[in-house]
Amino acid sequence: MDDDRLHVYDKTTGMFWKEPASPKQIFWREDQNTFQIGDVKTDFLEGIYSRIDDETAPFHALLVKKPGPISLTLEEVVQLLRFVTISYYRVPLNDQFIKDYVSSHSPQKLGFKIINKDSPDEAVPADIYEKIMGEPAFVESYRISKALLELLAYAENLVVDDWSVAAPTALNGIGLIGDNPVILKQGFAGYIVLHELIMPISKHHIIYHVKGKKPVQLSPEHKLKVDLCQILQAQQYVCGSNREYMQTLINYLAIPENNLTIERVTNDLFNDFK
């Protein structure tokens, strides 16, 4: 397509939307970031996300204009990690994980402390912590806190050379993106920045965190596997600029003899870097 609109495939219905849509129309959940706190209705979290998106947009725009492979500076890797971690914890797939994480950890473990400005040394009662940590607004906002705290904890061990951005040698302009875009080499184990991962960020560009052979020239077959993963691990929506290409991959996955599970395709994908 010639604009920013995308074709949308809904896995729950097995059908495409009748009309292409913009990313904001697709990946949007009504009142997800609107909360009732006491007598006040607020969408403060939407404002935080908007600010983060505005801060990230210039870096993303510059990145996707460059041909791959792209070697990154330390500052660029930090910006990239910020984008990846917040994107990962923001997806609907992690709704329950965030709720469980907040409910099963102490305020100290969550990096959360209440201070009485009039008596800074006075301990705040446990029931106050429980009340605040039980608020949906706190739980939802912790998606951002988890991402940023994780990034701070990981910063000392950051290996710049393990992060890169590359582009395939063919199939330019027809990549896919799903509602669960981060492809992990192994199952999630609590800290996303420690995982080897792959994440498409445009039709042409893919983020890599791999510790083996570095992605330089990516074959069309490799890009196909990235796109197959986007379909396989999406919860509901998969989007792309070329509907015919999307339908071809959907049909291919539907053939039982191919036995294309997410585990098999992911393993094949990361084996490209051995």
Rank of each mutant, 00 (worst) to 15 (best):
132 I>M: 01
111 G>H: 06
148 L>G: 10
148 L>H: 08
118 D>F: 14
107 P>I: 04
128 I>W: 06
123 A>F: 15
126 A>I: 15
143 R>D: 01
97 F>C: 04
152 L>I: 13
140 E>A: 15
137 A>F: 09
100 D>S: 14
112 F>H: 08
133 M>K: 03
120 P>F: 14
114 I>C: 08
136 P>Q: 07
146 K>P: 02
137 A>S: 10
115 I>T: 08
155 A>R: 15
100 D>V: 10
110 L>D: 00
158 L>Q: 01
137 A>Y: 04
156 E>M: 10
116 N>R: 09
112 F>S: 08
129 Y>T: 05
105 H>W: 02
99 K>C: 05
131 K>Y: 10
103 S>A: 14
122 E>T: 15
124 V>N: 02
138 F>Q: 01
121 D>S: 12
107 P>Q: 04
128 I>P: 01
153 A>G: 07
102 V>R: 00
144 I>G: 07
113 K>G: 03
157 N>T: 15
127 D>I: 15
161 D>L: 11
142 Y>I: 02
148 L>Y: 12
160 V>M: 08
161 D>G: 13
133 M>A: 05
116 N>W: 08
125 P>H: 07
109 K>M: 05
100 D>Q: 13
160 V>L: 07
154 Y>M: 13
110 L>E: 00
150 E>F: 12
162 D>V: 05
119 S>Y: 09
108 Q>H: 12
149 L>C: 09
153 A>I: 11
152 L>Q: 11
100 D>M: 13
158 L>V: 04
148 L>P: 06
135 E>I: 09
162 D>G: 06
153 A>Q: 09
160 V>Q: 06
139 V>N: 00
